[in-house]
Nucleic acid binder design. Structure first.
Length: 267
DNA sequence: ATGACGGATCTAATCCGA
């Protein structure tokens, strides 16, 4: 059985608990990383997900905003949350688990959105985003000999075909050169491989987020690839499948992000 | 390009998302 890992910005786990449960029933990933749970740890629907077979959970919540969690069928040997930029917010959690006898580390990130104005001198949120991505360069694809997978809402669409219009989005936060260059620096420094782009060539448009504000998200199709799955090269070469669940954007009361699922055969 | 939507919060008007 291949190992499967899913990532999904859920935009309030309490509001979309039943959607998560339906997703788990249908897709049965070994691990699910959630971002923007928007609740405190004691409000997280732990028991409901436990009932679905996800007995092992690592939750880093905060009131109202952000918050990340990992649901797992497999036990963790360690979990950790790092406070990037010393903001006291909840944007990272990691766990180590076993896959076919060897350990794998999983990092789950929610990178700051960055506000509207793409100028770090005028906009502190954009400055925070750039500093956050810079700090992420210390996260390596292999750490203490353990190969890693890094997933999450990185809030940056790095390639031209990661957005509906490269030209029209060059000055829009999420696709500005200073952001995409920063993310590429972090990606290269960590020694990562981009699993979505390993499966779907860069010539092809692929999105994981569509705004709520479009009248018809599907017809206008002005999406962006903001969610990512990166892995150490030795894990990347074991990828057997990857799916971006575009149809999830059309579910009832959807998140504005869709799940991405990767399968790795580590036998 | 913006913000037509949608979420959370000191439940009403405001902040935030990207």
């Amino acid at each position: 059985m291949p190992l499967s890992i899913a990532t999904w910005n859920i935009n309030s786990v309490r509001l979309r608990q039943s959607l998560v449960e339906e997703f788990l029933d249908e897709y049965q990933p070994d691990l699910l990383c959630l971002q923007e749970i928007k609740c405190q740890n004691d409000q997280f629907p732990e028991k409901a997900f436990r009932k679905k077979g996800y007995e092992h959970q690592a939750v880093k919540g905060q009131k109202g905003y952000h918050g990340v969690a990992i649901l797992s069928k497999r036990p963790f040997s360690q979990t950790h949350s790092r406070d990037f930029c010393n903001m006291g917010d909840s944007r990272h959690i990691s766990a180590v688990f076993e896959a076919d006898g060897s350990p794998v580390r999983l990092h789950n990130f929610y990178v700051p959105a960055g506000g509207d104005e793409p100028d770090p001198k005028k906009n502190p949120k954009f400055d925070h985003k750039l500093r956050f991505v810079d700090e992420m360069e210390a996260v390596s694809a292999i750490e203490d000999d353990i190969p890693s997978v890094l997933v999450g809402d990185l809030n940056i669409a790095p390639l031209e075909n990661d957005v509906w219009s490269h030209k029209q989005l060059l000055k829009i936060v999420s696709h500005t050169p200073v952001e995409t260059e920063g993310l590429t620096r972090t990606f290269n420094k960590g020694g990562w491989t981009d699993l979505i782009r390993q499966k779907i060539p860069p010539e092809e448009k692929i999105y994981t987020w569509w705004s709520y504000r479009a009248r018809d998200w599907e017809a206008s199709d002005r999406g962006r690839r903001l969610d990512h799955i990166w892995a150490a090269p030795q894990l990347a070469e074991r990828m057997t499948d990857l799916k971006v669940l575009k149809h999830a954007r059309g579910w009832e009361k959807p998140s504005d992000h869709v799940p991405v699922i990767v399968e790795l055969d580590l036998t």
